[in-house]
Each structure stands twice: as structure tokens, then as C-alpha cells.
Design a protein around this nucleic acid. Sequence first.
DNA 1: GCCATTGCTTGATGTTCTCAAGCATCGATG
DNA 2: CATCGATGCTTGAGAACATCAAGCAATGGC
Lengths: 130, 130
Amino acid sequence: MSLAAYYGDFTVAAASENLTASQGKTLNVLRRGPASMSALATTLTCDASNMTGIIDRLEKRGLVRREPRPSDRRVKNVVLTAEGERVIDVIRGKMHTTQAGLNRLDEQERDTLYTLLERAFVPQDAAARP
Amino acid sequence: MSLAAYYGDFTVAAASENLTASQGKTLNVLRRGPASMSALATTLTCDASNMTGIIDRLEKRGLVRREPRPSDRRVKNVVLTAEGERVIDVIRGKMHTTQAGLNRLDEQERDTLYTLLERAFVPQDAAARP
DNA sequence: GCCATTGCTTGATGTTCTCAAGCATCGATG
DNA sequence: CATCGATGCTTGAGAACATCAAGCAATGGC
């Protein structure tokens, strides 16, 4: 199935940087900007207690940083470090299959695809380009 | 990101039937017909030893059956049981978000979307309709 | 100040995932 | 045939992931 191809590819690319799929997805979400633990959990549709462990491991490797949010001291803002940014860029660059797949379409077709996906699946949020 | 929405939805639907995402994906693949352990592992981009455990648990719940392949006694063919078919149908029916998203497109747009996805991501296989 | 709510963490339990190792079968080659 | 490399699956160990219940700290309304 089409979408599985995308995720399989992402998993392989993430693994090449010694990251699990969940860690890769988390970095990918953080590319858009800092987010609280609960916001990450919501986006990745998992329990908040789950994010604690994932962020723990990413932080231990210096890819991510927990910062307090002054306006609400309960909240931890998770931020990509420079190294984290580098790693997620490398991963995205390595997604050969997806890139090759998208290259099979011309520019106008790619635009159409993105527009349709956006309308179908993203009610609230800006579209992310695979 | 658009594709994450699809999988989040699938995860929730699978959980409502007390299945994990991996178990749900496995049943979903088997909808197309029986497959060997290694074929499943390839499709789901994971290790063969991984499938053993997943199929073990699905089999214990009667959703799936291992059958020997007479032409090659090393191979185990994994087959959906009637109950397994019922469960995966329920799950697919529960994917409200995806359904609602696709309903936001008219028929011609859906066709375009499927065609583009197919051309971009599925070189070898028939297209699967989400 | 009280108290329900929210945000995050901890601990327990089961599942997933990967790797290395193992056993059985197959197919080809001598 | 007999052997031997390759293939299909399983097992076991160790890490990560997932979910739930419980807990603590901070918040905001009363």
C-alpha cells in the first residue's frame, strides 16, 4: 500500500542514523518548531508518558533539549538542537524511494497531490511536504 | 503531516478492537490473500523474527492461521480466519477521520489522488485504496 | 486558601523490534 | 546419492515502545 511505502522508507532512513521510527517521527515534528510534551503526544497519537521516554533518549543524545516555559512552569518545551536539525535533514535526504517516487511525477502533478492530501487529511494544520 | 493522520487514525481504530498497530497492519496486508512469514516481513519492512511474535499473538486469538505449504515444507502460509476478516473489516470501517477526509474530495479528485499515489509509491504492486 | 484540572513523570506489564544463533528443508553440484 | 550453501522460520537476549494507573507540581477559578 502506498502510505506504507513512505513509512517503510522513513524507518530505513531513520535507522541509518541509529534512530528508531518513533524518534525519527518526533524529530520530524519538531522541525516545525518547539512543542510541549503533550502537544507532541497528541500529534503522534500516543500517551504523554510515552513521550517522556522518547524525549529522554533523544535528549541523552543531544538531539533535543527540554526548556521550561516561563508562562507556565508545568510545561516543558522541547526544542531541536543544531545537531538534531542536522540529523533530521540527513534522514529526510536519505529517503530515496519516496524521492524517486515523487520524481516520477512532474511538478504540476506533485502540486495536485499535495493539495489533495492536504484537503483530505489536514483540517487544522499547515501541510508538510513529504 | 498528512500521512501521519492516516496512521494515527488506523492506530486508534485498531486499538478499539484491542489490536496494536502492527497487528492491524498485518491483518490489513492479509486481506489481499495468504502470505508467507517472510513475505509479510518484507511488506511490513521488519525482521522475519519479528513476524513470528506478531503472528503468534494473532493466532492465539484466532484471527489468523498458519498452514504448511505442501510444495515447500519450510514455508508457513498465513491465512486470515473468518473472525480475522470480520475484525479487519470493522477496523477499516471505524477509520472515521480518513473516511471524512476522503469524503471532502469529489469522486474525480479521489481518482486523481489514487492515481498519483499509485504512480509515486507503488512500482510493483496493485494500488491499495485507503 | 481550597480544589478540580492540567502537564509531566514514574513504575508495572505487555508488545515490538533487532541481532545472533539455531534447526529443518530445499536445490544444486560433485 | 551425499554434501553443502542458501532459504524459511523460530528462539533468546536486550533495548525501545506503548498503555495504564498513580503520583507530584503548577495553574486558575471559586
